[in-house]
Amino acid sequence: MTNQDENKEGIGGMINPRRYGIERVAYLLMRLSGLGLLAYFIGHIYETSTILKGQIGWNEFLALTQTNAGHAILAIVIAMCVFHTVNGIRVMLGHGGVGVGKPARPDYPYIPASQNIRHKMGIYSAIILAAIAMMYGLAVMFGE
């Protein structure tokens, strides 16, 4: 059965953050930051492997991170790292059933207990901390 036959939303629907509130935005950011950190990890391994070419090769590659573009990429990496860590802790706790509320008879208008203020605060905290860390990184790298 093809994707069209199954009427699946596909990746476009999966990454659409507009319809289901901040939780779906966090879901998207978690995936993007995870992929970004994976790309950084691969790049980092490649970068450190240049030491095999000797000190000149190492210094040449390291100089790339000292450019404006290099600083901007590192600042984004800092933000991704902080968001992924803080939101990851929230998600891990949720996955264990911590902070997702207790089962109870639902009353109209049926506000889901699992989408509670603690989790929303966790998501906003992750975003704010990531922004602060990124700004601090930018200040350190571009400050001189």
Binding site: R19, Y20, G21, E23, R24, V91, G94, P106, Y110, Q115
Partner: peptide
């Protein structure tokens, strides 16, 4: 992955 969209659309409050 605990995106929670399922709970937001449930018309019976199942969560």
């Amino acid at each position: 992955h605990f995106a929670g969209s399922c709970s937001q659309v449930c018309p019976k409050g199942v969560d």
